[in-house]
Design a protein around this nucleic acid. Structure first.
Length: 548
RNA sequence: GGCGUGUUCGUCUAGUGGUCAGGACGUCGGAUUCUCAAUCCGGAAACACGGGUUCGAUCCCCGUACGCGCUACCA
Protein backbone atom coordinates (compact mmCIF):
# COMPACT_ATOMS: atom_id res chain seq x y z
CA UNK A 1 0.00 0.00 0.00
CA UNK A 2 1.21 3.45 -0.88
CA UNK A 3 1.93 6.03 1.76
CA UNK A 4 -0.84 8.51 2.22
CA UNK A 5 1.52 11.31 1.34
CA UNK A 6 2.39 9.66 -1.97
CA UNK A 7 -1.28 9.13 -2.75
CA UNK A 8 -2.25 12.67 -1.84
CA UNK A 9 0.55 14.07 -3.99
CA UNK A 10 -1.16 12.59 -7.01
CA UNK A 11 -4.16 14.85 -6.55
CA UNK A 12 -4.72 18.59 -6.32
CA UNK A 13 -4.05 19.75 -2.77
CA UNK A 14 -7.43 21.48 -2.56
CA UNK A 15 -9.38 18.40 -3.61
CA UNK A 16 -12.35 18.08 -1.23
CA UNK A 17 -12.78 15.18 1.18
CA UNK A 18 -15.79 12.84 0.81
CA UNK A 19 -17.58 14.59 3.66
CA UNK A 20 -17.71 17.70 1.52
CA UNK A 21 -19.69 15.96 -1.18
CA UNK A 22 -21.82 14.06 1.30
CA UNK A 23 -22.89 17.38 2.76
CA UNK A 24 -23.44 19.00 -0.58
CA UNK A 25 -25.64 16.12 -1.73
CA UNK A 26 -27.59 15.09 1.36
CA UNK A 27 -30.13 12.28 1.49
CA UNK A 28 -33.34 13.42 -0.11
CA UNK A 29 -35.67 12.76 2.76
CA UNK A 30 -38.37 11.46 0.46
CA UNK A 31 -41.30 9.40 1.63
CA UNK A 32 -41.26 5.68 2.22
CA UNK A 33 -40.98 3.77 -1.04
CA UNK A 34 -40.11 6.82 -3.15
CA UNK A 35 -37.98 5.76 -6.08
CA UNK A 36 -35.18 7.92 -7.36
CA UNK A 37 -34.32 6.72 -10.84
CA UNK A 38 -31.99 7.83 -13.54
CA UNK A 39 -31.22 7.36 -17.18
CA UNK A 40 -27.64 7.60 -18.32
CA UNK A 41 -27.62 8.19 -22.04
CA UNK A 42 -24.24 8.23 -23.69
CA UNK A 43 -23.91 10.96 -26.31
CA UNK A 44 -22.22 8.75 -28.87
CA UNK A 45 -25.05 9.07 -31.37
CA UNK A 46 -28.75 9.61 -31.60
CA UNK A 47 -30.94 8.40 -28.79
CA UNK A 48 -31.73 4.72 -29.15
CA UNK A 49 -35.35 3.71 -28.86
CA UNK A 50 -34.20 1.43 -26.05
CA UNK A 51 -33.07 4.52 -24.14
CA UNK A 52 -36.49 6.05 -24.49
CA UNK A 53 -38.02 2.75 -23.42
CA UNK A 54 -35.99 2.56 -20.22
CA UNK A 55 -36.46 6.29 -19.62
CA UNK A 56 -40.20 5.81 -19.78
CA UNK A 57 -39.99 3.14 -17.09
CA UNK A 58 -37.74 5.36 -14.96
CA UNK A 59 -40.12 8.27 -15.34
CA UNK A 60 -43.14 6.16 -14.48
CA UNK A 61 -41.71 4.54 -11.37
CA UNK A 62 -40.44 7.83 -10.03
CA UNK A 63 -43.74 9.57 -10.66
CA UNK A 64 -45.92 6.89 -9.16
CA UNK A 65 -43.78 6.55 -6.04
CA UNK A 66 -43.37 10.26 -5.37
CA UNK A 67 -39.70 10.09 -6.22
CA UNK A 68 -37.53 11.80 -8.77
CA UNK A 69 -36.23 10.98 -12.23
CA UNK A 70 -32.82 12.17 -13.34
CA UNK A 71 -31.17 12.31 -16.73
CA UNK A 72 -27.43 12.15 -16.34
CA UNK A 73 -25.37 12.39 -19.49
CA UNK A 74 -22.67 9.76 -19.39
CA UNK A 75 -20.04 11.38 -21.52
CA UNK A 76 -16.94 9.76 -20.11
CA UNK A 77 -15.94 8.39 -23.48
CA UNK A 78 -14.95 11.67 -25.01
CA UNK A 79 -13.37 10.13 -28.08
CA UNK A 80 -16.70 8.74 -29.28
CA UNK A 81 -18.80 11.76 -28.46
CA UNK A 82 -21.03 13.05 -31.24
CA UNK A 83 -21.79 16.79 -31.31
CA UNK A 84 -25.45 17.67 -31.00
CA UNK A 85 -26.37 14.38 -29.40
CA UNK A 86 -27.41 15.91 -26.10
CA UNK A 87 -29.71 18.41 -27.82
CA UNK A 88 -31.30 15.56 -29.70
CA UNK A 89 -31.87 13.66 -26.45
CA UNK A 90 -33.66 16.63 -24.98
CA UNK A 91 -35.82 17.05 -28.04
CA UNK A 92 -36.71 13.36 -28.11
CA UNK A 93 -37.65 13.22 -24.44
CA UNK A 94 -39.76 16.29 -24.87
CA UNK A 95 -41.54 14.94 -27.94
CA UNK A 96 -42.55 11.81 -26.09
CA UNK A 97 -43.39 13.58 -22.86
CA UNK A 98 -40.77 11.70 -20.88
CA UNK A 99 -39.03 14.57 -19.22
CA UNK A 100 -36.73 14.41 -16.21
CA UNK A 101 -37.16 16.18 -12.90
CA UNK A 102 -33.44 16.84 -12.84
CA UNK A 103 -31.03 17.35 -15.71
CA UNK A 104 -28.51 19.88 -16.97
CA UNK A 105 -29.15 23.09 -15.03
CA UNK A 106 -32.17 21.88 -13.11
CA UNK A 107 -31.71 20.07 -9.82
CA UNK A 108 -29.43 20.33 -6.82
CA UNK A 109 -27.54 17.08 -7.25
CA UNK A 110 -25.66 18.14 -10.39
CA UNK A 111 -23.72 18.67 -12.48
CA UNK A 112 -25.58 16.15 -14.58
CA UNK A 113 -22.83 15.64 -17.13
CA UNK A 114 -20.21 13.19 -15.96
CA UNK A 115 -17.48 15.10 -17.74
CA UNK A 116 -18.14 17.95 -15.28
CA UNK A 117 -17.83 15.76 -12.20
CA UNK A 118 -14.10 15.17 -12.32
CA UNK A 119 -13.46 16.59 -8.86
CA UNK A 120 -16.04 14.32 -7.31
CA UNK A 121 -14.62 11.20 -8.88
CA UNK A 122 -11.09 12.14 -7.94
CA UNK A 123 -12.09 12.52 -4.30
CA UNK A 124 -13.33 8.97 -4.17
CA UNK A 125 -10.48 7.54 -6.22
CA UNK A 126 -8.09 9.08 -3.73
CA UNK A 127 -10.13 7.60 -0.92
CA UNK A 128 -9.87 4.13 -2.39
CA UNK A 129 -6.16 4.59 -2.97
CA UNK A 130 -5.65 5.74 0.60
CA UNK A 131 -7.44 2.72 1.97
CA UNK A 132 -5.69 0.33 -0.36
CA UNK A 133 -8.90 -0.61 -2.21
CA UNK A 134 -7.30 0.69 -5.37
CA UNK A 135 -3.83 0.93 -6.84
CA UNK A 136 -1.90 2.44 -9.68
CA UNK A 137 -1.33 0.35 -12.78
CA UNK A 138 1.34 1.32 -15.29
CA UNK A 139 0.74 -1.59 -17.66
CA UNK A 140 0.93 -0.55 -21.29
CA UNK A 141 -1.62 -1.39 -23.96
CA UNK A 142 0.87 -3.86 -25.38
CA UNK A 143 1.33 -5.62 -22.08
CA UNK A 144 -2.42 -5.88 -21.60
CA UNK A 145 -2.91 -7.23 -25.10
CA UNK A 146 -0.23 -9.77 -24.43
CA UNK A 147 -1.89 -10.88 -21.21
CA UNK A 148 -5.21 -11.32 -22.99
CA UNK A 149 -3.56 -13.30 -25.79
CA UNK A 150 -1.83 -15.64 -23.38
CA UNK A 151 -5.03 -16.18 -21.41
CA UNK A 152 -6.94 -16.98 -24.55
CA UNK A 153 -4.21 -19.35 -25.73
CA UNK A 154 -4.45 -21.31 -22.50
CA UNK A 155 -8.25 -21.02 -22.35
CA UNK A 156 -8.18 -19.08 -19.11
CA UNK A 157 -10.75 -16.40 -18.35
CA UNK A 158 -9.45 -13.12 -19.67
CA UNK A 159 -8.89 -10.22 -17.37
CA UNK A 160 -6.62 -8.48 -14.94
CA UNK A 161 -6.63 -10.72 -11.89
CA UNK A 162 -4.44 -13.07 -9.86
CA UNK A 163 -0.97 -13.49 -11.26
CA UNK A 164 -1.94 -11.47 -14.32
CA UNK A 165 -2.53 -8.42 -12.18
CA UNK A 166 1.10 -7.38 -12.46
CA UNK A 167 0.80 -4.06 -10.64
CA UNK A 168 -1.51 -5.20 -7.89
CA UNK A 169 1.25 -6.07 -5.48
CA UNK A 170 4.17 -3.97 -6.65
CA UNK A 171 6.26 -2.40 -3.94
CA UNK A 172 5.98 1.25 -3.14
CA UNK A 173 9.49 1.68 -4.54
CA UNK A 174 8.51 0.24 -7.93
CA UNK A 175 5.47 2.49 -8.09
CA UNK A 176 7.50 5.51 -7.08
CA UNK A 177 10.07 4.71 -9.74
CA UNK A 178 7.40 4.51 -12.45
CA UNK A 179 5.93 7.76 -11.18
CA UNK A 180 9.33 9.42 -11.26
CA UNK A 181 9.75 8.35 -14.87
CA UNK A 182 6.50 10.15 -15.59
CA UNK A 183 4.81 7.04 -16.96
CA UNK A 184 1.03 7.34 -17.42
CA UNK A 185 -1.12 5.09 -15.30
CA UNK A 186 -4.67 4.10 -14.64
CA UNK A 187 -6.21 3.44 -11.27
CA UNK A 188 -7.52 -0.06 -10.72
CA UNK A 189 -9.87 -1.38 -8.12
CA UNK A 190 -8.33 -4.02 -5.86
CA UNK A 191 -11.06 -6.61 -6.15
CA UNK A 192 -11.69 -8.65 -3.02
CA UNK A 193 -13.14 -11.49 -5.08
CA UNK A 194 -11.73 -15.00 -4.63
CA UNK A 195 -11.66 -17.82 -7.15
CA UNK A 196 -14.76 -19.98 -6.88
CA UNK A 197 -16.66 -17.41 -4.86
CA UNK A 198 -20.26 -16.66 -5.89
CA UNK A 199 -22.25 -13.47 -5.64
CA UNK A 200 -26.00 -13.51 -5.06
CA UNK A 201 -28.22 -10.56 -5.58
CA UNK A 202 -31.86 -9.75 -6.13
CA UNK A 203 -33.12 -8.18 -9.31
CA UNK A 204 -36.48 -6.44 -9.08
CA UNK A 205 -37.59 -8.07 -12.32
CA UNK A 206 -35.87 -11.44 -12.31
CA UNK A 207 -35.70 -12.29 -8.64
CA UNK A 208 -32.61 -13.87 -7.16
CA UNK A 209 -29.64 -14.10 -9.49
CA UNK A 210 -26.26 -15.71 -8.97
CA UNK A 211 -22.95 -15.05 -10.61
CA UNK A 212 -19.27 -15.75 -10.16
CA UNK A 213 -17.84 -13.08 -7.90
CA UNK A 214 -15.81 -10.48 -9.71
CA UNK A 215 -12.05 -11.08 -9.53
CA UNK A 216 -11.06 -8.53 -12.10
CA UNK A 217 -9.19 -5.47 -10.97
CA UNK A 218 -11.25 -3.23 -13.18
CA UNK A 219 -10.04 0.17 -14.19
CA UNK A 220 -11.88 2.88 -12.29
CA UNK A 221 -10.00 5.95 -13.45
CA UNK A 222 -8.76 6.32 -17.00
CA UNK A 223 -5.24 7.25 -18.11
CA UNK A 224 -3.41 9.91 -16.11
CA UNK A 225 -2.19 11.65 -19.25
CA UNK A 226 -5.68 12.70 -20.27
CA UNK A 227 -7.70 15.69 -19.26
CA UNK A 228 -10.26 15.75 -17.87
CA UNK A 229 -9.49 12.60 -15.94
CA UNK A 230 -12.60 10.54 -16.14
CA UNK A 231 -13.84 7.37 -14.52
CA UNK A 232 -15.12 4.26 -16.20
CA UNK A 233 -18.82 3.47 -16.16
CA UNK A 234 -18.48 1.12 -13.20
CA UNK A 235 -16.96 3.69 -10.92
CA UNK A 236 -19.11 6.58 -12.10
CA UNK A 237 -22.19 4.47 -11.51
CA UNK A 238 -21.27 3.85 -7.89
CA UNK A 239 -20.25 7.41 -7.12
CA UNK A 240 -22.98 9.21 -9.04
CA UNK A 241 -25.86 7.02 -8.06
CA UNK A 242 -24.80 7.26 -4.44
CA UNK A 243 -24.34 11.01 -4.39
CA UNK A 244 -27.45 11.65 -6.44
CA UNK A 245 -29.23 9.45 -3.93
CA UNK A 246 -30.57 7.16 -6.61
CA UNK A 247 -32.09 4.07 -5.08
CA UNK A 248 -33.37 2.16 -8.10
CA UNK A 249 -31.14 1.51 -11.06
CA UNK A 250 -33.07 0.46 -14.15
CA UNK A 251 -30.88 -0.49 -17.06
CA UNK A 252 -30.45 -2.96 -19.89
CA UNK A 253 -29.87 -6.61 -19.10
CA UNK A 254 -26.38 -6.43 -20.58
CA UNK A 255 -25.38 -5.07 -17.18
CA UNK A 256 -26.33 -8.13 -15.21
CA UNK A 257 -22.84 -9.55 -15.57
CA UNK A 258 -21.38 -6.41 -14.06
CA UNK A 259 -23.43 -6.39 -10.89
CA UNK A 260 -20.85 -8.32 -8.84
CA UNK A 261 -18.28 -5.68 -9.72
CA UNK A 262 -20.66 -2.89 -8.86
CA UNK A 263 -21.52 -4.43 -5.52
CA UNK A 264 -17.84 -4.69 -4.61
CA UNK A 265 -17.37 -1.06 -5.53
CA UNK A 266 -20.31 0.11 -3.45
CA UNK A 267 -19.02 -1.88 -0.49
CA UNK A 268 -15.46 -0.63 -0.80
CA UNK A 269 -16.69 2.94 -0.99
CA UNK A 270 -18.90 2.41 2.03
CA UNK A 271 -22.04 3.25 0.05
CA UNK A 272 -25.40 1.72 0.64
CA UNK A 273 -26.25 -0.68 -2.16
CA UNK A 274 -28.99 0.23 -4.65
CA UNK A 275 -31.80 -1.85 -6.03
CA UNK A 276 -31.38 -3.12 -9.57
CA UNK A 277 -33.89 -3.85 -12.30
CA UNK A 278 -32.51 -5.21 -15.54
CA UNK A 279 -34.73 -4.71 -18.56
CA UNK A 280 -34.87 -7.04 -21.55
CA UNK A 281 -33.73 -5.19 -24.66
CA UNK A 282 -35.89 -4.32 -27.66
CA UNK A 283 -35.12 -6.70 -30.49
CA UNK A 284 -35.28 -6.82 -34.25
CA UNK A 285 -36.12 -9.74 -36.48
CA UNK A 286 -33.17 -10.66 -38.65
CA UNK A 287 -33.94 -13.44 -41.07
CA UNK A 288 -34.85 -16.43 -38.96
CA UNK A 289 -33.33 -15.16 -35.75
CA UNK A 290 -33.47 -12.02 -33.73
CA UNK A 291 -30.95 -9.57 -32.44
CA UNK A 292 -30.81 -6.36 -30.51
CA UNK A 293 -32.01 -3.32 -32.39
CA UNK A 294 -28.89 -1.79 -33.81
CA UNK A 295 -28.39 1.92 -34.18
CA UNK A 296 -26.35 1.47 -37.30
CA UNK A 297 -28.46 -1.06 -39.16
CA UNK A 298 -32.02 -0.25 -38.15
CA UNK A 299 -33.56 3.13 -38.83
CA UNK A 300 -36.30 2.44 -36.31
CA UNK A 301 -33.66 2.01 -33.61
CA UNK A 302 -33.27 5.77 -33.52
CA UNK A 303 -35.90 7.82 -31.77
CA UNK A 304 -35.36 10.34 -34.56
CA UNK A 305 -37.08 7.93 -36.94
CA UNK A 306 -40.32 8.19 -34.99
CA UNK A 307 -40.12 11.95 -34.67
CA UNK A 308 -39.37 12.52 -38.34
CA UNK A 309 -42.31 10.43 -39.44
CA UNK A 310 -44.47 12.15 -36.83
CA UNK A 311 -45.69 9.13 -34.92
CA UNK A 312 -48.16 10.44 -32.33
CA UNK A 313 -46.38 10.40 -28.99
CA UNK A 314 -49.25 8.90 -26.94
CA UNK A 315 -49.57 6.00 -29.37
CA UNK A 316 -45.87 5.23 -29.20
CA UNK A 317 -45.97 5.44 -25.42
CA UNK A 318 -48.98 3.19 -25.32
CA UNK A 319 -47.25 0.64 -27.51
CA UNK A 320 -44.08 0.71 -25.44
CA UNK A 321 -45.97 0.43 -22.18
CA UNK A 322 -47.71 -2.62 -23.56
CA UNK A 323 -44.34 -4.17 -24.23
CA UNK A 324 -43.18 -3.42 -20.70
CA UNK A 325 -46.31 -4.74 -19.01
CA UNK A 326 -48.60 -6.82 -21.22
CA UNK A 327 -51.49 -5.98 -18.91
CA UNK A 328 -51.30 -2.36 -20.06
CA UNK A 329 -51.75 -3.36 -23.69
CA UNK A 330 -55.20 -4.67 -22.79
CA UNK A 331 -56.27 -1.33 -21.34
CA UNK A 332 -57.64 1.58 -23.38
CA UNK A 333 -54.93 4.06 -24.27
CA UNK A 334 -55.83 6.77 -21.79
CA UNK A 335 -55.97 4.32 -18.91
CA UNK A 336 -52.78 2.57 -19.95
CA UNK A 337 -50.88 5.85 -19.92
CA UNK A 338 -52.04 6.52 -16.36
CA UNK A 339 -51.70 3.04 -14.91
CA UNK A 340 -48.44 2.42 -13.09
CA UNK A 341 -45.82 0.14 -14.55
CA UNK A 342 -44.93 -2.82 -12.38
CA UNK A 343 -41.39 -4.14 -12.45
CA UNK A 344 -42.51 -7.56 -11.33
CA UNK A 345 -44.68 -7.81 -14.45
CA UNK A 346 -41.89 -6.96 -16.85
CA UNK A 347 -41.10 -9.60 -19.43
CA UNK A 348 -37.70 -11.20 -19.22
CA UNK A 349 -37.27 -11.97 -22.92
CA UNK A 350 -36.49 -9.17 -25.34
CA UNK A 351 -39.56 -8.27 -27.42
CA UNK A 352 -39.45 -7.63 -31.15
CA UNK A 353 -40.49 -4.15 -32.16
CA UNK A 354 -43.54 -4.60 -34.39
CA UNK A 355 -43.99 -1.49 -36.51
CA UNK A 356 -47.16 -2.90 -38.05
CA UNK A 357 -48.80 -3.14 -34.67
CA UNK A 358 -47.60 0.34 -33.84
CA UNK A 359 -49.27 1.57 -37.04
CA UNK A 360 -52.51 -0.03 -35.98
CA UNK A 361 -52.36 1.64 -32.59
CA UNK A 362 -51.52 4.97 -34.19
CA UNK A 363 -54.46 4.76 -36.59
CA UNK A 364 -56.86 3.96 -33.78
CA UNK A 365 -55.51 6.80 -31.71
CA UNK A 366 -55.59 9.43 -34.44
CA UNK A 367 -59.17 8.40 -35.19
CA UNK A 368 -60.14 9.62 -31.73
CA UNK A 369 -58.71 13.11 -32.25
CA UNK A 370 -60.68 16.13 -33.38
CA UNK A 371 -59.88 18.04 -36.54
CA UNK A 372 -58.50 20.92 -34.47
CA UNK A 373 -56.22 18.59 -32.57
CA UNK A 374 -54.96 16.95 -35.73
CA UNK A 375 -54.27 20.27 -37.39
CA UNK A 376 -52.37 21.53 -34.42
CA UNK A 377 -50.29 18.36 -34.12
CA UNK A 378 -49.59 18.16 -37.83
CA UNK A 379 -48.62 21.82 -37.86
CA UNK A 380 -46.25 21.36 -34.96
CA UNK A 381 -44.59 18.44 -36.71
CA UNK A 382 -44.52 20.19 -40.07
CA UNK A 383 -42.77 23.17 -38.52
CA UNK A 384 -39.60 21.12 -38.85
CA UNK A 385 -40.36 18.57 -41.52
CA UNK A 386 -42.72 20.21 -44.00
CA UNK A 387 -42.74 24.01 -43.71
CA UNK A 388 -44.93 24.49 -46.76
CA UNK A 389 -47.66 22.48 -45.09
CA UNK A 390 -47.59 24.78 -42.05
CA UNK A 391 -48.44 27.74 -44.23
CA UNK A 392 -51.17 25.90 -46.07
CA UNK A 393 -52.77 24.73 -42.85
CA UNK A 394 -52.71 28.24 -41.48
CA UNK A 395 -54.03 30.03 -44.55
CA UNK A 396 -56.55 27.36 -45.52
CA UNK A 397 -57.61 26.34 -42.08
CA UNK A 398 -61.29 26.08 -43.02
CA UNK A 399 -60.46 23.72 -45.85
CA UNK A 400 -58.36 21.67 -43.45
CA UNK A 401 -61.14 21.46 -40.90
CA UNK A 402 -63.64 20.53 -43.59
CA UNK A 403 -61.30 17.88 -44.94
CA UNK A 404 -60.91 16.40 -41.49
CA UNK A 405 -64.67 16.17 -41.11
CA UNK A 406 -64.93 13.79 -44.06
CA UNK A 407 -65.87 10.46 -42.53
CA UNK A 408 -64.22 11.53 -39.28
CA UNK A 409 -65.03 13.31 -36.12
CA UNK A 410 -66.72 12.40 -32.85
CA UNK A 411 -70.19 11.98 -34.39
CA UNK A 412 -69.00 9.41 -36.91
CA UNK A 413 -69.47 5.85 -35.71
CA UNK A 414 -66.75 4.39 -37.85
CA UNK A 415 -64.16 7.09 -38.41
CA UNK A 416 -61.56 6.85 -41.15
CA UNK A 417 -58.23 5.39 -40.12
CA UNK A 418 -56.06 6.70 -42.87
CA UNK A 419 -53.76 8.79 -40.68
CA UNK A 420 -51.17 6.96 -38.62
CA UNK A 421 -48.45 9.52 -38.43
CA UNK A 422 -48.19 13.16 -39.38
CA UNK A 423 -46.11 12.46 -42.47
CA UNK A 424 -49.23 10.73 -43.86
CA UNK A 425 -51.24 13.92 -43.82
CA UNK A 426 -50.04 15.35 -47.08
CA UNK A 427 -50.65 12.12 -48.98
CA UNK A 428 -54.04 11.46 -47.45
CA UNK A 429 -55.45 14.99 -47.27
CA UNK A 430 -53.29 17.20 -49.47
CA UNK A 431 -55.75 17.08 -52.37
CA UNK A 432 -58.33 19.00 -50.36
CA UNK A 433 -56.18 22.11 -50.61
CA UNK A 434 -56.41 23.86 -53.98
CA UNK A 435 -52.91 25.23 -53.54
CA UNK A 436 -51.47 21.75 -53.10
CA UNK A 437 -53.49 20.06 -55.81
CA UNK A 438 -52.04 19.65 -59.31
CA UNK A 439 -54.94 19.39 -61.76
CA UNK A 440 -55.20 16.19 -63.73
CA UNK A 441 -55.44 17.19 -67.38
CA UNK A 442 -53.50 14.46 -69.16
CA UNK A 443 -56.14 12.00 -70.33
CA UNK A 444 -53.54 9.31 -70.89
CA UNK A 445 -52.50 9.45 -67.24
CA UNK A 446 -52.13 5.92 -65.97
CA UNK A 447 -54.31 6.70 -62.97
CA UNK A 448 -57.26 6.95 -65.35
CA UNK A 449 -57.01 3.27 -66.13
CA UNK A 450 -56.19 3.47 -69.84
CA UNK A 451 -59.69 4.44 -71.05
CA UNK A 452 -59.88 6.10 -74.46
CA UNK A 453 -58.94 9.80 -74.08
CA UNK A 454 -61.94 11.01 -76.05
CA UNK A 455 -64.27 9.00 -73.82
CA UNK A 456 -62.65 10.53 -70.77
CA UNK A 457 -63.00 14.03 -72.18
CA UNK A 458 -66.63 13.53 -73.14
CA UNK A 459 -67.51 11.98 -69.79
CA UNK A 460 -65.82 14.75 -67.83
CA UNK A 461 -67.42 17.46 -69.95
CA UNK A 462 -70.86 15.93 -69.53
CA UNK A 463 -70.36 15.60 -65.81
CA UNK A 464 -69.30 19.21 -65.44
CA UNK A 465 -72.10 20.56 -67.63
CA UNK A 466 -74.86 18.81 -65.75
CA UNK A 467 -73.34 18.85 -62.28
CA UNK A 468 -75.60 19.41 -59.33
CA UNK A 469 -74.25 19.75 -55.81
CA UNK A 470 -76.85 17.45 -54.25
CA UNK A 471 -77.07 16.79 -50.54
CA UNK A 472 -78.19 13.20 -50.72
CA UNK A 473 -75.38 10.78 -51.40
CA UNK A 474 -77.37 8.34 -53.46
CA UNK A 475 -78.84 11.06 -55.62
CA UNK A 476 -75.48 12.66 -56.04
CA UNK A 477 -73.90 9.42 -57.16
CA UNK A 478 -76.87 8.92 -59.46
CA UNK A 479 -75.34 11.56 -61.69
CA UNK A 480 -72.36 9.33 -62.27
CA UNK A 481 -74.60 6.32 -62.80
CA UNK A 482 -76.61 8.03 -65.46
CA UNK A 483 -73.54 9.32 -67.25
CA UNK A 484 -71.90 5.94 -67.03
CA UNK A 485 -74.91 4.35 -68.68
CA UNK A 486 -75.00 7.04 -71.32
CA UNK A 487 -71.32 6.52 -72.16
CA UNK A 488 -71.70 2.79 -72.39
CA UNK A 489 -70.27 1.63 -69.05
CA UNK A 490 -71.59 -1.54 -67.51
CA UNK A 491 -73.89 -0.90 -64.52
CA UNK A 492 -71.78 -3.10 -62.27
CA UNK A 493 -68.57 -5.11 -62.35
CA UNK A 494 -70.48 -8.40 -62.69
CA UNK A 495 -72.01 -7.34 -65.99
CA UNK A 496 -68.62 -6.29 -67.21
CA UNK A 497 -67.17 -9.64 -66.29
CA UNK A 498 -69.89 -11.47 -68.18
CA UNK A 499 -69.38 -9.41 -71.27
CA UNK A 500 -65.95 -7.79 -71.15
CA UNK A 501 -65.91 -6.68 -74.78
CA UNK A 502 -69.27 -4.94 -74.67
CA UNK A 503 -68.19 -2.14 -72.33
CA UNK A 504 -65.23 0.21 -71.89
CA UNK A 505 -65.52 -0.55 -68.20
CA UNK A 506 -68.05 -0.63 -65.41
CA UNK A 507 -69.48 1.92 -63.06
CA UNK A 508 -66.34 1.33 -61.06
CA UNK A 509 -64.10 2.67 -63.82
CA UNK A 510 -66.48 5.53 -64.51
CA UNK A 511 -66.43 6.60 -60.88
CA UNK A 512 -62.68 6.38 -60.91
CA UNK A 513 -62.53 9.07 -63.58
CA UNK A 514 -64.25 11.50 -61.29
CA UNK A 515 -62.23 10.31 -58.34
CA UNK A 516 -58.93 10.87 -60.06
CA UNK A 517 -60.06 14.24 -61.35
CA UNK A 518 -61.11 15.34 -57.87
CA UNK A 519 -58.41 13.77 -55.75
CA UNK A 520 -55.56 12.80 -58.04
CA UNK A 521 -55.70 9.36 -56.52
CA UNK A 522 -57.29 6.01 -57.22
CA UNK A 523 -58.17 5.68 -53.55
CA UNK A 524 -60.01 8.33 -51.61
CA UNK A 525 -62.71 8.90 -49.04
CA UNK A 526 -66.31 8.83 -50.14
CA UNK A 527 -66.64 10.77 -53.41
CA UNK A 528 -69.81 12.57 -52.47
CA UNK A 529 -68.29 13.78 -49.23
CA UNK A 530 -65.18 14.88 -51.06
CA UNK A 531 -67.19 16.80 -53.64
CA UNK A 532 -69.36 18.50 -51.03
CA UNK A 533 -66.26 19.48 -49.10
CA UNK A 534 -64.48 20.89 -52.12
CA UNK A 535 -67.51 22.90 -53.18
CA UNK A 536 -69.09 23.19 -56.60
CA UNK A 537 -66.60 25.64 -58.05
CA UNK A 538 -63.60 23.56 -57.17
CA UNK A 539 -65.29 20.37 -58.38
CA UNK A 540 -66.00 21.96 -61.73
CA UNK A 541 -62.50 23.41 -62.00
CA UNK A 542 -60.98 19.98 -61.46
CA UNK A 543 -63.34 18.04 -63.70
CA UNK A 544 -63.11 20.61 -66.49
CA UNK A 545 -59.33 20.28 -66.43
CA UNK A 546 -59.85 16.68 -67.43
CA UNK A 547 -62.44 17.59 -70.03
CA UNK A 548 -59.86 19.77 -71.71
C1' G B 1 -14.02 -21.15 -24.45
C1' G B 2 -15.96 -19.45 -19.49
C1' C B 3 -19.94 -17.18 -16.89
C1' G B 4 -24.81 -15.29 -17.03
C1' U B 5 -29.63 -15.05 -19.03
C1' G B 6 -33.74 -16.44 -21.93
C1' U B 7 -37.30 -19.86 -25.11
C1' U B 8 -46.21 -20.45 -25.41
C1' C B 9 -49.51 -19.14 -32.52
C1' G B 10 -45.61 -15.20 -37.74
C1' U B 11 -45.40 -11.03 -33.63
C1' C B 12 -46.72 -9.09 -28.42
C1' U B 13 -48.42 -12.09 -24.80
C1' A B 14 -52.40 -14.57 -20.92
C1' G B 15 -52.49 -18.91 -18.32
C1' U B 16 -52.74 -23.63 -15.32
C1' G B 17 -50.14 -30.18 -12.14
C1' G B 18 -56.10 -32.27 -15.39
C1' U B 19 -58.13 -25.79 -20.05
C1' C B 20 -61.37 -27.35 -26.73
C1' A B 21 -54.12 -23.53 -24.07
C1' G B 22 -57.32 -17.37 -24.04
C1' G B 23 -56.66 -12.32 -26.22
C1' A B 24 -54.44 -8.58 -29.51
C1' C B 25 -51.70 -7.30 -34.22
C1' G B 26 -50.78 -9.70 -38.77
C1' U B 27 -52.58 -13.41 -42.21
C1' C B 28 -56.52 -16.22 -44.96
C1' G B 29 -61.93 -16.59 -46.39
C1' G B 30 -66.71 -14.23 -46.55
C1' A B 31 -70.20 -9.94 -46.08
C1' U B 32 -70.61 -4.61 -47.35
C1' U B 33 -69.07 -1.26 -51.46
C1' C B 34 -68.12 3.56 -56.82
C1' U B 35 -62.20 3.11 -54.97
C1' C B 36 -59.63 3.35 -50.29
C1' A B 37 -59.23 3.60 -44.81
C1' A B 38 -62.46 0.90 -42.06
C1' U B 39 -66.46 -2.16 -40.11
C1' C B 40 -68.93 -7.02 -39.34
C1' C B 41 -68.66 -12.50 -39.48
C1' G B 42 -65.63 -16.84 -39.89
C1' G B 43 -60.90 -19.82 -40.42
C1' A B 44 -55.74 -21.37 -39.96
C1' A B 45 -52.00 -20.70 -36.47
C1' A B 46 -48.11 -22.00 -30.41
C1' C B 47 -46.47 -24.62 -25.12
C1' A B 48 -38.02 -25.55 -28.56
C1' C B 49 -36.15 -30.82 -27.88
C1' G B 50 -34.91 -35.19 -24.67
C1' G B 51 -35.15 -37.38 -20.05
C1' G B 52 -37.16 -37.72 -15.22
C1' U B 53 -41.02 -36.77 -10.84
C1' U B 54 -46.39 -37.82 -11.15
C1' C B 55 -52.35 -41.40 -12.13
C1' G B 56 -51.43 -37.06 -15.29
C1' A B 57 -47.05 -32.23 -17.18
C1' U B 58 -47.02 -26.54 -21.28
C1' C B 59 -46.62 -25.78 -15.89
C1' C B 60 -41.88 -28.96 -11.17
C1' C B 61 -36.52 -31.07 -11.72
C1' C B 62 -32.19 -32.35 -14.88
C1' G B 63 -29.92 -32.18 -19.46
C1' U B 64 -29.60 -30.68 -24.91
C1' A B 65 -30.27 -27.22 -28.72
C1' C B 66 -30.80 -22.40 -30.14
C1' G B 67 -30.98 -16.94 -29.10
C1' C B 68 -29.07 -12.86 -26.42
C1' G B 69 -25.43 -10.63 -23.11
C1' C B 70 -20.71 -10.06 -20.49
C1' U B 71 -15.67 -11.51 -20.73
C1' A B 72 -12.48 -3.04 -22.87
C1' C B 73 -8.68 2.79 -20.26
C1' C B 74 -17.37 1.52 -24.56
C1' A B 75 -21.35 2.48 -22.16
Amino acid sequence: MLDRAVVDALFPSDLPEPSHWEEQYPPRGLGEGAKVTRLGPSPTGFLHIGGLYVGMIDRDLASHSGGSYIVRVEDTDQAREVPGAVEQFTKAFKYFGIEPDEADEVGSYGPYHQSQREQIYLTYVRELLRSGHAYLCFATKEELADITARQQATKLPTGYYGRWAIWRDKTAEDVQAALDEGRPYVVRFRSPGKAGERTKFVDAIRGELEHDANRNDVVILKASDQSPRLPTYHFAHAVDDHLMRVNLVIRGEEWISSVPTHLQLFDALGFERVEYAHIAPLMKQQGGSRRKLSKRKDPEASVEFFIEAGFPAPAVQYYMRGLVNARLAELPLAEALEAPISLAECGVAGPLVDLVKLDDICADHVATLSGEEIISLVSEWAETYDPELVTVLATERDAALAALRVERGPEVANPRKDLRKWADFRTAYGFFFPSLFPLVSDRTDERLGGLPPELIAAFAADFADGYADLEDGQEWFGQIRELAAKHGFAPNPKELKKNPDAYPGSIREAAQLIRVALTGSKASPDLHAVARTLGTDEVLRRVRALAG
